[in-house]
Design a protein around this nucleic acid. Structure first.
Lengths: 166, 166
DNA sequence: AGCATTAAAGAATAATATTCAAAATAATTC
DNA sequence: GAATTATTTTGAATATTATTCTTTAATGCT
């Protein structure tokens, strides 16, 4: 039994091999239906349903997401920006403000630099400049920024490595 | 009508407001069923099904993914690593090799530095060191690395900004 | 071993997915 | 701008799946 803290909420769980298999299937295709999972695992659909519900309740499965082609929505420019802030340790004013910007997909508090690394998607470089001027520019406590433009993405997934049958 | 290139494959599409609404719903919860979407949009389920299929075929929807709590799989350490390589322009040997490592979730070819920015999840710092030694260490063409450890993640999503009703 | 708890199976019902022909819309052509 | 063609949507019928609930099996605990 493992115990850990997530966003102020205590969460408990213990996962077995069947759970791992379910997670593996769902991670690969979140629209796989219960009946198919049940068939694949040789179990009753009702049993799978139970387990999936539990995985959701236990915050093991956090959400189901449709990955959309950024180009289809004209968001072709991906950038990473290092942001140096004057946030005090423990505080996260700048981080929270950054997280509120829709184009900012990720905000990570990083070690060493009193700063954040953020991931941003905009239509193009103009959109990026606008964002930096209009959104970042309005946040109090940002000392400096360093922008890294992505030329091409070779891989972009969130599939976690799921432990193998031991 | 927009045309763009994706992974060597030409893709064409034109999205209307209904498509945007479907994408909005699916992005928020990829398990929303056709019937519900149909009800929400006041259309027949069969019509929604048609559109979703088309969005998949047109590579607008790339995949359906279950987001799993990294802590539940004991992958609590997130890091970003800058990798300087001797890849020639256009070539991507190092990038492709990096992409083959399961713990490497993202590989971005970045401007300016002849290098890549990768995103890595491991259980802990030991796992990270192992990965650098065993996986990165075996890749030909890596000149140097600079690792950034994430202390805390404030936001981590992939929800794209979907254009509003005009 | 016996009691308690949890998970799985199985059957029955409700709901959804999917298919397809017909009607409606939109787009194109002359 | 009327006619034609192509594309979408609807609506109904059928196949599949989701969901609930009871029974049975498995597991854990003292």
């Amino acid at each position: 039994m493992l115990t850990f803290a997530l966003n102020m909420t205590k969460v408990e769980f213990s996962l077995d091999q069947i759970d791992y298999q379910i997670l593996r299937i769902m991670q690969a295709n979140a629209r796989t239906n219960n009946a198919d999972i049940a068939r694949e695992l040789g179990m009753a659909p009702s049993a799978i349903l139970e387990r999936v519900k539990k995985l959701e309740q236990k915050n093991v499965i956090l959400k189901y997401h449709a990955k959309i082609n950024p180009a289809a929505l004209d968001q072709k420019l991906l950038s990473f920006i290092f942001i140096k802030s004057n946030d005090i340790i423990g505080d996260q004013k700048v981080g929270v403000a950054l997280a509120e910007i829709p184009e900012v997909l990720e905000v990570h508090d990083i070690a060493g630099d009193d700063g954040y690394l953020i991931k941003v998607r905009t239509s193009d470089s103009t959109g990026l400049v606008d964002l930096m001027r209009n959104s970042l520019g309005k946040i109090e406590g940002i000392i400096s920024t360093r922008t890294t433009i992505v030329l091409q993405t070779v891989k972009e997934e969130q599939e976690l490595v799921i432990p193998n049958e031991k």
